[in-house]
Design a protein around this nucleic acid. Sequence first.
DNA 1: TTCCAGGCGTATC
DNA 2: GATACGCATGGA
Length: 269
Amino acid sequence: MEYIKNGGDILLKTPDLDLDETLDCGQAFRWERIGSGSDCTYRGFMLNTPLTVSAEKDYFRFHDTDEETFQKVWIPYFDLETDYTEIKERLSEDGTLAKACAYAGGIRLLRQDSWEALCSFIISQNNNIPRIKGIIGRLCDMYSGFPGFEQMKGIVPDDLAPLRAGFRAKYITDCIEKLNSGKIVIDEVKKLPVDEARKILMTIKGVGPKVADCALLYGMYRIDCVPMDVWMKRVMEQFYPEGFPEFVLPYAGIAQQYLFHYMRTEISK
DNA sequence: TTCCAGGCGTATC
DNA sequence: GATACGCATGGA
């Protein structure tokens, strides 16, 4: 990973990054492709830090970005200090994973804000990706950006009616209550062993094993967590009836990224 | 019209 | 602990 300043932009050279694969694979819901065809440009946010980013010939262009923001926000967000080449090499000892890594090797795990990830994946349950994006977009419209849970203190499900989140509205308000009352402190949850962290997250209404694992994987970078949604259940049933091989387990969450995308877009069609 | 979507709560056994 | 069913909403 190396970068240079170019006017107000930053140009980044890095392997193992594809913006379409990474920003539009169902791990984050606030990136919009504003370029069409070969103009691969996305507009989105890390919490409320905005970014326009383009894939150009030999580098990625981070538009209107100062070096401090790039280092503090975007390097961690895009997980640029992790060597995905090495991870993919290791995972590719397994035949199915070798195919999945080759199919979409530009997927990276985005290190998202913990609260945004938790809230987003509560909304995701029994829902499809376009509609998840719609609900989160309306939430951001309501608050002029992605609101902090402190900002939403005291709201009741009816207050969220404009989101058209359906039965999930009461889950969001329960989550907000538990965070604001201090029943759950995200920074404490982050430090716990995964099993304990999962248990605590699951005390929130509407947070079961899958949503908890998404919050852990995408919001707290617990890369051994594998959210078991309908697609991953199909993957496991078809390719890993005995579970993942031992050597995959430390990176199972990243393996899941490749396999989820592979199953959802290639095998099932 | 019916089915399904990055599931979960509840009832029942 | 396992299984069945309802749930808001909207696109296919």
